[in-house]
């Protein structure tokens, strides 16, 4: 599969898929999408890299610890829950903040987005960790 076309195509496609996955993540609260779907999409993109270029090649360019990703994601998700408790709410209660900025307009943030980002990171990290370990195994 390591043809030149595949390499070229994947070099173009992967960043687009990654961007798309981020947009899925952020849009998830109102539209189809969310942390899972975004994460799985991101993971598919990178796994495309792994398949096309080979794990060793990718690793030789940039050594990545995917386990750190899911650790951070898990931490982020849990801390979100705990953080809300500091405001006097129960664990994982959603808090909604909206503010109006000049030029940008009104921006509203709901705390669950951080939870979703955590999910996103965990899914990416978990799946790619499995891929990498499996791919590296000879």
């Amino acid at each position: 599969m390591t043809t030149l076309i595949a390499k070229t195509v994947s070099k173009v496609c992967v960043p687009i898929i990654i961007l798309f996955s981020i947009s899925l993540l952020l849009a998830g609260h109102d539209n189809p999408g969310g942390g899972f779907i975004g994460g799985v999409m991101f993971a598919s993109a990178i796994s495309l890299f792994y398949v096309v270029f080979g794990v060793d090649h990718i690793e030789s360019i940039y050594k990545n610890h995917w386990d750190k990703w899911f650790a951070v994601g898990l931490l982020l998700a849990t801390i979100t829950g705990i953080g809300i408790m500091l405001l006097g709410y129960n664990f994982l209660r959603s808090a909604y903040v909206s503010a109006t900025f000049p030029l940008i307009g009104e921006i509203s943030i709901i705390s669950t987005i951080f939870f979703d980002i955590g999910v996103y990171l965990v899914v990416i990290g978990g799946i790619l960790h499995i891929f990498k370990e499996m791919g590296e195994d000879k």
């Binding site: 998830g28 609260h29 109102d30 539209n31 189809p32 999408g33 969310g34 942390g35 899972f36 994982l92 959603s94 909604y96 509203s108 709901i110 669950t112 939870f115 979703d116 999910v119």
Partner: peptide, 14 residues
């Protein structure tokens, strides 16, 4: 209450 339009996602994260 949960400020989300995608009910599935709201259930999942909230």
């Amino acid at each position: 209450l949960a400020k989300g339009h995608n009910m599935v996602n709201v259930i999942l994260v909230d």
